[in-house]
Design a protein around this nucleic acid. Sequence first.
DNA 1: CGCAAAACATGATAAACATCATATTTTTTG
DNA 2: CAAAAAATATGATGTTTATCATGTTTTGCG
Lengths: 205, 205
Amino acid sequence: MLDELTETRYGKDDFIFREGDPAEYFHIVKEGTVKCVKSSPQGKECTLKMLMPGDLFCCDATVFDGACHPGSAKPMGNVSVLRIKKDVYYDILRRNPDAAIAVIKYLGNRLNEAQEKAKILALDRADQRLAMLLVDMAAKSGVSDPEGIRLNIRITREDMANMVGTTTETAIRIMSRFKREQLVTGTANRLIIRNMERLKAFASA
Amino acid sequence: MLDELTETRYGKDDFIFREGDPAEYFHIVKEGTVKCVKSSPQGKECTLKMLMPGDLFCCDATVFDGACHPGSAKPMGNVSVLRIKKDVYYDILRRNPDAAIAVIKYLGNRLNEAQEKAKILALDRADQRLAMLLVDMAAKSGVSDPEGIRLNIRITREDMANMVGTTTETAIRIMSRFKREQLVTGTANRLIIRNMERLKAFASA
DNA sequence: CGCAAAACATGATAAACATCATATTTTTTG
DNA sequence: CAAAAAATATGATGTTTATCATGTTTTGCG
């Protein structure tokens, strides 16, 4: 059964799959960070979720029903992904109630997360959303640094803009302000959160 | 086992449960429409989803882990809801792989829906979002009418505003414009879509 | 029915944000 | 290391949306 589990590596400019492709596999992130994105006909892009090691994707209806991917999956840097053919995945779930319940719990959390994201987009300002993102990323992929908490993934202002639903320019302006106010420092390759407390306070003000 | 299934009726001003309450039951909508809402500390409200008969809620992690409801559930008019205690629900899933897989599919669809909603909030204008909502509601709960497609649930401009992430005033202004342009007519109690095609075209322009 | 409350409407004003343009800095790459 | 490309920065300007205010219409209810 586990022969069916294959590992694939992807680089920065690859696509793991594209919006509209037929969904044939169930995926798990093994190493690195993968982003789920959707884009508009006008070419604007929106990042729905950053998947970290252990995260499942395409664990949902899409796979079973043989429908198309509702969004694309792109690596952020070098990543390694495990894949299983959908019928094998289905069999595992059918024979293994614990696995099915684990997937239900996982999907439930993802749903809550997605709804929280929608709420934030609906109710909060761009600068607050960006502050929340920084706090969030610091918690998830921050490492201790003499100057504060450093993020160990490369995130450009454009990436941030796509994650919080603004334009690149607006994200840059907000980050400039945060830098002026000593909340953060650095650019994509070396981004440091200098004052978590004030950033958190700002996020929920 | 099915003794554990209880039916409860709620009216317009009740809460089925409130944000922050401990989650103890798994729920299914039997009759009527239920809305899932979250609100901000400032008292702004955001409607995440309208649940129709057959929809599950609290089918996710929240129930198992005994955590708190991340949002509130409110009836839109008179509704009837079925409830099962969480441990009974858990047992059903554990013993019944088909049920578990059905829940996985359902949650997968809900996740896709929530992510699509986030994308729309991130990328589209308020007037387009409102047009999409009208098209959507017409498809889901519209009935044929000499003047066009009539919605058979009561939806105020304020409800619409909460569903598309704007203010009541903005929703009213947009609806006034749509009325002027003969796309819709009527108010909360009798809302009619007069031109689906143009509304659809506007939504994705 | 008639009255009160809710819903709808619209103007004036300001804040938030997008867009386009251009310059500088940082990063990547041959 | 130097050149090219990508990322960051910032100004000017216009659009979109929120806010506050005030009046009208519709609806629910005793």
